[in-house]
Design a protein around this nucleic acid. Sequence first.
RNA 1: GGCCCCAUAGCUCAGCCGGAUAGAGCACGCGCCUUCUAAGCGCGGGGUCGCAGGUUCGAGUCCUGCUGGGGUCGCCA
Length: 580
Amino acid sequence: MNVFKGFRQQLLAVLGEMAGAGELPGGLDTSRVAVEPPREAAHGDVSTNAAMVLAGQAKANPRQLAPKIAERLKALPGVTGVEVAGPGFLNLRFTPEFWQAQIAVILRAGLAYGDSDAGGGLPVNVEYVSANPTGPLHAAHARGAVVGDALANLLEKAGFAVTREYYINDAGAQVDVLGRSAYLRYREALGESIGEIPAGLYPGEYLKEVGQVLAARDGRRWLEALESEWLPAVRDFAIDAIMVGIKEDLTALGVGIQVFSSERALVAAGAVRAAFDTLTARGLIYEGVLEPPKGKVPDDWEPRPQTLFRATQFGDDVDRPLRKSDGSWTYFANDIAYHLDKYRRGARVLIDVWGADHGGYIKRMQAATTAITEGGAALDVKICQLVHLMDNGVPVKMSKRAGTFVTLRDVIERVGADVVRFIMLTRRNDQTLEFDFAKVTEQSKDNPVFYVQYCHARCRSVLRHAGEPDAEMLAAEAPLDRLSSPEELELIRLLAGWPRLVEAAAEAHEAHRVAFFLYDLAAGFHALWNRGKDDTTLRFLVEGDPGLSRARLALVKAVATVIASGLRVIGVAPVEELRS
RNA sequence: GGCCCCAUAGCUCAGCCGGAUAGAGCACGCGCCUUCUAAGCGCGGGGUCGCAGGUUCGAGUCCUGCUGGGGUCGCCA
């Protein structure tokens, strides 16, 4: 249970009593009443703006209303003090017993601590990675993969019904290029000298193996065939081979995508046609000529009639074409059908994780989602900014043309999946991120992965020393009232903030907050640990005082539990110890 | 030129649905220290939240305009 949410319920009950007693008018709108931890410790344990928010409705002055609410709040169990401060804030303090009891709550919940029903089982579809199946995943894909996967975990913890999905763009011209590139490697595998890979085809070495396996399977069957005959077969073979590799890479990164949707299958099933007909029936399709773009007009611009979707009716800047001049669907048209498909399969919140270069596509996709689902589903798009790969401060050069890009697999093998996952969440998704091979593996305070893992390892070390006390035993028997120092109580407050953070981060669709929370929690624990250096009575295991030791063990185990619970959301395994 | 994102301490970045005296790490300065786990620890200085208006009891947060950086710009996915 979220401490703050719980208190808010009590507060609302009090306000209800006051309405009953005639101290407040009935039917108050309490939606803006907030209960939150104050930034300043001097402002107590929780703070509420209730008096300020309700003053207008009650036709009262906040400073006059606040004391009346305060009187009743003082009577609540666990509340030790209520103050009116500033423009009308109500600052409350809870008894130490209230906070100490949270330790038992954490220990009994275990890794499930922070689980919430805030999502109410609402179906959410998170689509991420969705890299073109034309080559292996490279380093840049890691960010989207982690952001999407951690967000999915977070939403699940917050009580949403999550589907993790990957959209395979296997319908466009690019996969034909893949097919031709693979065909060349196939001929090479059968002994032909193919020379330099022509411009416009994929030069990557990874296609050699595809060509060899194809040659082994089909022999010389396609050598004399027309392209119209071999292309579909070779292309599909290559796509399947590439996707096998991509799935292996995702598994290596711990990314658990459940649904892989094929764009081509969608088109073949007539889904695009159906979506198009639906939009047409709703009067949202027309043949028209777009205005030239404002400002700089492309050299080759000329007015052309096109089949357009009325995206401007749903907040986009211009209407968008759905057909190419050869009559086939645009990528956008396919994407509309795809988003409708996700909605039809039940999703009511759609989240797409895209690269920064697709930012200009957001408005139209949101417009289309609103239109095609008639407002039944909302689309949120998370844009992932660039990752700058560095090695000890030196930028790692990558060139697709020269085939020198760093693959995701390379990165994982070099630093480990856990490090990749954690570091990718140490910035907001819309900020660029620096990934330095040297720094992310260094065992120092500068490295947040290490800092958080070290916290867990220290906890585990203490618990091992103490003979692995059982969580239930600690919850039931530890004299938690002995956790009475300001530092210990402060650490408990941090721990008790985890459920609230889960809910807030899930609502905002921001998994990076989990990484920042873990860092703060680790800092709080390390500070407490360090106090034991100078003063042995502040150590967790206190010689000759088994009761105190047991209480502190309960705290340590609670810290380890919350760290592990948070790392699980990020998809990182907590470590037992650190070795160099 | 249109649209989108960004701008917070010297540097890298947090900042919740608008809330009280804007935070952390690094760097810098001073002091301490040889370890229940092995990253040393503690304290301190440092801010016109890009600029100018507006809304509000209250703005880093919302709105408008401007400046600077990035992305994108009619059938590439």
